[in-house]
């Protein structure tokens, strides 16, 4: 595979998981985010996604899993999302 090895999600000091998918080609960000939700979504922590674009394909997949997303403030040029179970 030609895609870079992604960094795993990390637990931040804010009590949320963080995953940085900036620079990854589609659909790699989608896969990493959903794998994180599927594997660790049951621990009750929100997942903060650091992205460089709006992941339009993500929302329907989140809805199928009973999750939703909201945009929160991020760095300039960053799309930062907070994902949580509904």
């Amino acid at each position: 595979m030609s895609m870079p090895t992604p960094e795993p999600a990390t637990l931040g000091s804010d009590g949320c998981w963080h995953i940085d998918v900036r620079g990854l080609p589609p659909p790699q960000p989608l896969l990493l985010i959903l794998r994180q939700v599927d594997d660790h979504g049951h621990d009750g922590r929100a997942l903060i996604v650091h992205h460089d674009r709006d992941p339009a394909m993500l929302y329907a997949e989140l809805a199928e899993r009973g999750w939703w997303a909201e945009r929160i403030d991020g760095d300039p040029g960053e799309v930062r999302l907070r994902l949580a179970a509904t």
Partner: peptide, 25 residues
């Protein structure tokens, strides 16, 4: 999945800064 000690997380938003700009999709 790594712990914060093993891998520094990206900067987290400041408390209260998680202003909702949009919902769902």
């Amino acid at each position: 999945m790594k712990t914060p000690q093993a891998h520094a997380p990206p900067p987290a938003p400041a408390p209260g800064a998680a202003r909702r700009a949009a919902l769902g999709g």
